[in-house]
């Protein structure tokens, strides 16, 4: 028997398009988006069991209760984690490695909530970003009622 290093490949697939998931979160998040658009408010849901506040809203809590109370949270936030595209500011990284417009992505916790939202930081040099820094949502002039409204934060002067 002649041993082959490359044998026949049989092609197949997983027709994932036939899967249709169910998510309460879609309806909850839509509500939050509507409140952003109509009232320029950040609405989160609060767990009756442990008091954790979820933003964006979440249909279940890790304490096994269903967060069903709507509460308004603030548009100021604290940075808990971050990264960059384009590392123009860092040691040993040449300019030619930076491609596209440099962006700072950050995980922030809005005041009044207990959860993280991912956003982009503007108006700050990357080397100055730090965990624990205070930021504020930069509301777009026209609020679209979607995730893009939450896409930009700026440092908060306190």
């Amino acid at each position: 028997m002649e041993y082959k290093n490359e044998t026949i490949a049989i092609e197949g697939s997983w027709n994932l398009a036939s899967w249709e998931w169910k998510f309460e979160s879609i309806a909850l998040i839509r509500k939050t988006f509507e409140a952003m658009k109509n009232e320029r408010k950040l609405m989160a849901n609060k767990c009756p069991g442990c008091g954790r506040v979820y933003f964006l809203p979440k249909p279940y809590c890790l304490c096994l209760s269903i967060p069903d109370e709507w509460v308004e949270i603030k548009d100021t936030a604290t940075v808990t984690t971050y990264t960059f595209t384009g590392a123009w500011a860092y040691e040993g990284i040449a300019d030619d490695e930076v491609s596209g417009t440099p962006q700072i992505f950050a995980g922030v916790v809005f005041d009044g909530s207990d959860t993280k939202t991912v956003t982009m930081l503007e108006g700050i040099e990357p080397e100055k970003v730090h965990v624990g820094m205070r930021v504020k949502l930069k509301w777009p002039e026209e609020v679209a009622g979607g995730l893009t409204d939450l896409a930009h934060c700026v440092p908060l002067e306190e």
Binding site: F23, S25, I26, L28, I29, A44, R52, Y54, F55, L56, P57, K58, P59, L62, T80, T81, G107, V109, S113, D114, T115, K116, T117, V118, V131, L147
Partner: peptide, 19 residues
């Protein structure tokens, strides 16, 4: 922990710092 980065379908997650 709770899944980090984002919770279910974009909901918030209490796992706020992946490190």
């Amino acid at each position: 922990d709770e899944a980090a980065l984002v919770g279910i379908s974009g909901s918030g997650t209490t796992n706020v710092d992946p490190c």
